[in-house]
Design a protein around this nucleic acid. Structure first.
Length: 781
DNA sequence: GACTAGACTTGGAAGAATCTTT
DNA sequence: AAAGATTCTTCCAAGTCTAGTC
């Protein structure tokens, strides 16, 4: 239960065993002597003698390479701008460059500052504005040394999950067809699994099942075994295949339904009750200011849902007891009382930490922290600092780029690898890529890229294919600098093979140390922030103010999407996606059909028009065919019939409600005559291959207008549908929340008159309060 | 420099709430 | 009003990176 064994956030690091490998890294063409000052670091694991057939199974269905050309071309443009700007900054502020304090770019902030001052005065007079006066920390960011995070801190600790409530007597886990009695502790574990049968990604994962079953068996053994609920005989639970959790699942499902079906008032009351009991934990007092706590709930016991091929996925994540929890709180504050009969593991007064409580989870020994919510001052400040740091990189980026460009040809292997790695981090927004342990999913970042993750295609194309954070696949074919191509070829040279590091001389800390030389605090991840925000800034810069709000929001989202693609932020395609797409094409086809009918009507009105416009114009569009038309006609007929029926029913209801008599079936028949006529009309059209002109005073001109209108609608729908398809596996959220400087969005909102609500949800507006209140429409990243 | 404990940010998915369509 | 789609929020896993120890 105690997880005190020292582990790096639980993960045992892979030993850095060094193989003495006398690899020669001489390039084929050029003869460069690269001193091998250090021993080569290779994976401690032997190269897996995997059968090729297995390893060749594609990771995902279809590699969706990004549009290499347009994206990289634009990136080039933005890089040029970056270089220009870096030079301009240095020219502008030859001496001040060192520390750009928040008030640093005085020119731009002065107007807003004075405006705010005015506002502040007004506010003093009419106090009714907000609850309590807000603390505009961003107007006065002290550098400080950043170590002491608070002077006083009061909070009420954490909320524990409810105790386990045993299942009703008639709901059982089944084994080999028999209901089984389990000790509540083992039964609880059964419910972890039973309640998630709908989660196919887990329940169909053999590792998940194996791990779960092992732990489950352990619990059964530990708690006195399992018994046949009918006979009372001991049952040995030894085969996962014979386990049946269906009854448990159905019970949970029914409970979920029951909850959902509750009257709205009851739901509301239940929520109010919960809010009330949790209220004391929602907020804390941080340096005397009320601040929202983020995650005050202790994580409930469950099955660990490790992602990708996590070797421990499915293991039981145990219930956390007060005895495992460390509380961090002000010296003078009242320490929250642990639950009756329990005590805290420890109570600290660590002013250098921003966490309120902490414990270690039993699977990986990972630390779990209770911290403040994203909208709190501390989090806001560090967010602000993060973006300021990224902006600071603007001043150095040209140097850094020039440097790595030069060092791509460095004599020493380390330097070459360093330059190549930074190149990739900068150009492809790769993560640093820390070393990972044996008992984690095998994912990589830049420094940990493996031999097999890179495929070289002469003259200078590189295919990257690897699983990154969260086992999300990164697949991209990229055109790289010829020297980078050469280098990668060298880095991959024999005796390296599958499983070996491409950058065998690099570690993330070495890389970051190198980066610090250019700028204090510069690390690999700053490049991601910088490139994301810089890209967004440039995309927004090129926008012209046109269209309505919806169109402008779309433009914004398009830019957002470009950033998300840059960062490789993906989501799994929604189950309903294909269906939705089909519906959309059907709708489009319906419009195309309408258009075609209009054209046929024109033929009836003007006998010469066929010659004038050409036969092509009147042909049935290629995406439609006879069969489709028949079906569509039938659908239209059915649709109309349904509509009339519904209207009729509704009218009748109304009549009854008003005390009138119901309409007769005859009336319905009369109304439905229109449908019959439509049907007849279609029949005739199909037979004669002619379409009678419709509408009042039909004319070729009117029909043409109509066709144009429909064309418009088709176009919008097509755009919508293409948009949807392109967006199906791109997740916009992460870049919006973590990478794009929120001030960019605020400026966009102001400049183009798009309400900020359209760009930021309520929580995001709270999180980015500092950004919303601190910039004018001329602020630049 | 290697190693790792610790603390903090980033990330996708699940679940809840809300909007849209039927 | 139910169903379906979409958006927002919560959850917690999985990264990054610093600093301390040897």
């Amino acid at each position: 239960m105690d997880v005190d064994s020292p582990q790096a956030n639980g993960m045992k690091r892979k030993g850095r065993k060094s193989n003495e490998n006398k690899a020669s890294y001489r390039e084929d063409s050029e003869s460069e002597d690269m001193p091998l000052s250090k021993r080569r670091r290779t994976s401690s694991k032997p190269v897996k003698p995997e059968s090729d057939s297995e390893s060749d199974v594609p990771l995902a269905k279809k590699p969706s390479a990004k549009d290499v050309n347009s994206l990289s071309k634009q990136k080039e443009k933005f890089e040029k701008r970056a270089e220009k700007e870096a030079k301009a900054i240095r020219k502008d502020a030859p001496k001040k460059v060192k520390q750009e304090t928040p008030k640093g770019n005085t020119k731009k902030q002065t107007p807003s500052a004075s405006a705010k001052a005015k506002k502040a005065v007004v506010k003093d007079e009419e106090v009714d504005e907000d609850e309590d006066e807000e603390y505009r920390w961003w107007e006065n960011v002290q550098q400080g040394d950043g170590t002491k995070k608070w002077a006083t801190l009061e909070h009420n600790g954490v909320v524990f999950p409810p105790d386990y409530e045993p299942l009703p007597k008639d709901v059982k886990f089944y084994y080999d067809g028999n209901p089984i009695d389990l000790h509540p502790e083992a039964e609880e574990v059964a419910t972890f699994y039973g309640s998630m049968l709908h989660s196919t990604v887990n329940v169909e994962n053999p590792t998940f099942n194996k791990n779960f079953f092992e732990d489950f068996q352990g619990y059964i053994k530990k708690t006195g075994g399992a018994k046949n609920a009918k006979t009372g005989d001991k049952v040995d639970i030894k085969s996962f295949e014979k386990c049946n959790f269906k009854h448990i699942f159905e019970w949970f499902d029914a409970e979920r339904e029951k909850k959902k079906a509750l009257p709205a008032a009851d739901k509301k009351a239940a929520k109010a009750e919960k809010d009330k009991t949790e209220a004391p934990y929602q907020y804390c007092m941080w340096d005397g200011r009320k601040q929202k706590v983020g995650n005050f709930r202790v994580e409930p016991p469950a099955l660990f849902r490790g992602r990708g091929e996590h070797p421990k996925t499915g293991r039981v994540k145990k219930r956390v007891f007060p005895e495992q929890i460390t509380i961090n709180i002000g010296k003078d504050a009242t320490v929250p009382a642990p639950p009756e009969g329990h005590k805290w593991k420890e109570v600290k007064h660590d002013q250098e930490g921003t966490w309120l409580a902490m414990w270690q989870e039993n699977i990986n020994g990972a630390y779990k922290y209770v911290m403040l919510a994203a909208n709190s001052d501390v989090k806001g400040q560090s967010d602000y600092k993060k973006f300021e740091k990224a902006r600071e990189l603007k001043k150095h980026i040209d140097h850094i780029r020039k440097d790595y460009q030069k060092n791509l040809r460095a004599e020493k292997m380390v330097d070459r690898q360093m330059a190549s790695a930074i190149y990739l981090i900068d150009r492809l927004a790769l993560r640093a890529g820390n070393e990972k342990g044996e008992d984690e999913a095998e994912t990589v970042g830049c420094c940990s890229l493996k031999y097999e993750n890179i495929t070289l295609e002469p003259p200078n194309h590189v295919i990257f294919d690897f699983l990154g954070k969260d086992s999300i696949r990164f697949y991209d074919k990229v055109e790289v600098d010829p020297q980078v191509f050469k280098n990668l070829k060298i880095f991959k040279k024999a005796p390296k093979g599958r499983g070996d590091d491409v950058f065998d001389r690099l570690t993330t800390s070495g890389l970051n140390k190198h980066l610090q030389q250019y700028m204090t605090g510069l690390t690999a991840k700053v490049f991601r922030t910088y490139n994301a925000s810089w890209t967004m800034a440039n995309l927004l810069k090129d926008i012209k103010a046109t269209g309505n709000v919806a169109e402008k929001v779309k433009i914004f989202n398009d830019a957002n999407r470009r950033v998300a693609i840059l960062c490789n932020h993906k989501r799994t395609v929604a189950a309903s996606h294909e269906n939705t797409m089909e519906k959309m094409t059907e709708r489009i086809n319906g419009l195309v059909y309408q258009q075609w009918r209009c054209k046929q009507m024109m033929l009836e009105l003007d006998s010469k028009i066929k010659k004038k416009k050409g036969a092509e114009y009147f042909a049935l569009p290629s995406q439609l065919d006879e069969e489709w038309v028949r079906k569509h006609q039938a659908d239209l007929v059915a649709e109309q019939r349904e509509k009339i029926q519904k209207k009729f029913d509704k009218d009748n209801e109304k009549r009854i409600a008003e005390g009138e008599k119901k309409m007769s079936g005859k009336e319905l028949d009369e109304r439905l005559e229109a449908v019959d006529e439509l049907q007849k009309k279609f029949k005739k059209e199909n037979k004669t291959k002619k379409v009678e002109p419709e509408g009042r005073g039909p004319s070729v001109e009117k029909l043409e207008q109509n066709i144009d209108k429909i064309t418009q609608r088709i176009e919008t729908m097509k755009v919508q549908s293409e948009d949807k398809e392109a967006n199906k596996e791109v997740a916009l959220g992460t870049s919006k929340i973590n990478y794009i400087d929120p001030r960019l969005s605020v400026v966009f909102s102001k400049k183009f008159d798009v309400p900020i609500e359209r760009l930021f949800s309520k929580t995001l507006r709270e999180k980015f309060d500092w950004a919303i209140k601190s910039v004018d429409d001329d602020w630049e990243f």
